[in-house]
Simulated assay, not measured.
Amino acid sequence: MIRVCLAGVTGWVGQPLAAAIEAAEDVELVAAVARRARGEVLGRLTITGSVAEALAIPSDVFVDYTSANAVKDNVLAAVRAGRHVVVGSSGLTDEDVREIDGVARSARVGVLAVGNFSITAALLQRFAVEAARHLSSWEIIDSAYAGKMDAPSGTARELAWRLSEVRPPEVEVPVEQTVGDVTARGASVNQSRIHSIRLPGYTIGLEIRFGRQDERLTLSYDGGPGATPYVAGTLLAIRRVSEFIGVVRGMDRLL
């Protein structure tokens, strides 16, 4: 039985994930964190208000579905407490991931920092990496709901990092030579240009556009209003994270 501590248990993914863990035969929810729901009862558990309180309860895997502001400190606390970690929150930078990787390796625990636990989002990343081996120019469009505070999204950052393992994209006009407002060319993340859109009516989406002379290729992912795709992927990560030491990036690494 895998004992799970879930931070962000009352959130959009946290609530259905907690229910899925309770329904699973090989996974058990032993601790739950939600700052605003501290003291409330969830099944057989009393929700704690801090990660420190929750980590005092013996567990095997810590799952974070909190916020971009809290995720790094939460993950480091869990790793230092000897827990394997599944990161469902976005907001970690490459520098954050490197720091977490060093601490996790010292603690001999695994951390799955995926960015998006949807299988279809993972497939987009896999297809994009293959396309980058043949098409040398691309840009990324990251879309999300209006209230998402971090940009680019974890999904977009993950894609840019994966593409950097293949090659940097070619550009005809260097961005710094842009005539006008250079910020209109988007942010540079691992040498890829990312354009972040935050609007009502969106949930989470990712698009990558490849281009070369006389042709183009577009790959896109759009998440719907429900959390079901992320729950299944997170359960898979919970079951597999103990197989690793240090940080593993990319949901497709689990497929």
Results as ranks from 00 to 15, higher is better:
residue 168 P to G: 07
residue 204 I to R: 11
residue 26 D to P: 02
residue 238 I to H: 03
residue 91 G to T: 07
residue 242 S to K: 15
residue 114 V to W: 01
residue 8 G to T: 02
residue 235 L to G: 07
residue 111 V to A: 06
residue 52 A to Q: 12
residue 41 V to Y: 00
residue 103 V to A: 14
residue 152 P to N: 07
residue 38 R to N: 08
residue 47 I to L: 15
residue 57 I to L: 01
residue 15 Q to T: 12
residue 150 D to Q: 08
residue 184 A to I: 10
residue 134 H to K: 15
residue 205 G to N: 09
residue 165 E to T: 13
residue 25 E to R: 13
residue 70 A to N: 11
residue 131 A to P: 11
residue 47 I to A: 14
residue 170 E to C: 10
residue 120 T to K: 14
residue 121 A to F: 03
residue 103 V to C: 05
residue 68 A to Q: 07
residue 243 E to P: 02
residue 106 S to E: 15
residue 125 Q to V: 01
residue 144 A to D: 13
residue 195 H to T: 03
residue 184 A to W: 06
residue 114 V to C: 14
residue 92 L to R: 07
residue 245 I to T: 13
residue 91 G to Y: 07
residue 226 G to Y: 12
residue 89 S to L: 14
residue 213 Q to A: 15
residue 50 S to Y: 06
residue 104 A to T: 09
residue 241 V to E: 04
residue 23 A to H: 07
residue 195 H to P: 08
residue 165 E to V: 10
residue 112 L to W: 03
residue 117 F to I: 00
residue 195 H to Y: 15
residue 127 F to G: 00
residue 52 A to K: 06
residue 231 V to P: 07
residue 188 S to T: 13
residue 250 G to M: 02
residue 119 I to G: 05
residue 200 P to R: 09
residue 148 K to Q: 08
residue 189 V to T: 05
residue 238 I to F: 05
residue 208 I to L: 06
residue 209 R to Y: 04
residue 60 D to L: 09
residue 227 A to H: 04
residue 187 A to N: 01
residue 217 L to Y: 01
residue 149 M to Q: 12
residue 87 V to S: 03
residue 53 E to H: 13
residue 147 G to T: 06
residue 46 T to L: 01
residue 249 R to S: 11
residue 46 T to I: 07
residue 34 A to R: 01
residue 65 Y to T: 00
residue 156 A to G: 05
residue 234 T to V: 11
residue 109 V to H: 09
residue 99 E to G: 02
residue 74 N to S: 15
residue 115 G to D: 05
residue 241 V to Y: 00
residue 174 P to R: 15
residue 151 A to Y: 12
residue 183 T to C: 01
residue 215 E to V: 01
residue 229 P to V: 13
residue 52 A to H: 04
residue 122 A to E: 13
residue 147 G to A: 11
residue 182 V to N: 01
residue 222 D to R: 14
residue 2 I to Q: 06
residue 177 Q to M: 12
residue 26 D to I: 11
residue 19 A to D: 05
